[in-house]
Amino acid sequence: MNTIDRSTDTLRVLAISGSLRADSINSALLRAAGALGGPEVKLELWDGLAAVPPFSEDDEAEPGAGVAGMLAAVAGADALLFATPEYNRSLPGQLKNALDWASRPYGRSVLTGKAVAVIGASPGNFGGRRAHADLTKVLKACGAVVVGDEVCVPQADTALGEDGLPATEELRTALTGLLDALGEAVRAA
């Protein structure tokens, strides 16, 4: 359920990186998006992906602290912004696993009706386009509402300047556009 604070119009966005790497460009892109969001966007980078155990229906009744923390973070956000690297032409297994947990129970999960947007980055020429497509497909199957234009960042190692912000106006516009699309989707719900 979207719970935007209409008294302040602050959009609470939970940013989830599909990378576990400390120096991940995808995590850096999420931080850049947060810096561009302005005072009306509160973006929190969730760093609990590594603590989510493999999904098992046997563990659904008592999923453990890693899953419980993730579900609470997702439920408490107005919207989600994902950034995914591309591993073997698809999304990382750890991210897919987390979505399997978050999709339960089907039709009543924390993802059902949640506004989400996706960015992807890779050092190659396609910018994680295949992982972006796969993540978008999985999110839609989970009942999330995917908004915004496709944002795939090629040659990601040069996408951000030394200040941590996008090196091009095109990327800056794309990231702020996704935040705007998330805000519009939440307000329309």
Rank of each mutant, 00 (worst) to 15 (best):
N2Q: 13
N2K: 07
T3H: 14
D5G: 01
R6G: 01
S7G: 09
T8E: 00
D9Y: 00
T10L: 11
T10W: 00
V13M: 12
A15Y: 12
S17K: 04
G18Q: 08
S19N: 09
S19R: 06
L20F: 05
R21L: 06
A22K: 15
S24V: 10
I25C: 01
S27Y: 01
A28C: 06
R31M: 02
A32F: 12
G34Q: 10
G38T: 08
P39V: 10
P39I: 00
L45Y: 07
L45P: 03
W46A: 05
P54C: 03
S56C: 02
E57T: 12
E57V: 10
D58E: 15
D58Q: 12
A61W: 02
E62Y: 00
G64R: 09
A65G: 00
V67A: 04
A68V: 14
G76E: 13
A79E: 08
A79C: 08
L81I: 04
A83G: 13
A83F: 03
P85V: 03
N88D: 11
R89F: 14
S90F: 02
L91I: 14
G93H: 05
Q94R: 12
L95H: 04
L95N: 03
K96W: 03
N97F: 11
N97W: 10
L99K: 07
A102E: 05
R104N: 09
R104K: 14
P105N: 10
P105L: 11
Y106F: 15
R108V: 00
R108W: 04
S109R: 02
V110R: 07
T112F: 00
G113P: 08
G113H: 03
K114I: 01
K114N: 03
A115I: 04
A115S: 15
A117D: 05
I119V: 15
S122A: 15
N125M: 13
F126A: 13
G127D: 11
G127V: 09
G127I: 10
L135A: 11
L135G: 10
L135V: 11
T136F: 02
V138F: 13
L139S: 10
A141N: 12
A141W: 02
V147Y: 06
G148F: 04
G148I: 08
G148R: 08
D149E: 15
E150A: 15
V151E: 02
C152W: 01
D157E: 15
G161H: 07
G164V: 11
L165F: 08
T168E: 10
L171E: 06
R172T: 15
T173W: 00
A174Q: 15
L175T: 05
D180W: 06
A181N: 07
L182V: 10
R187V: 10
R187A: 14
A189N: 12
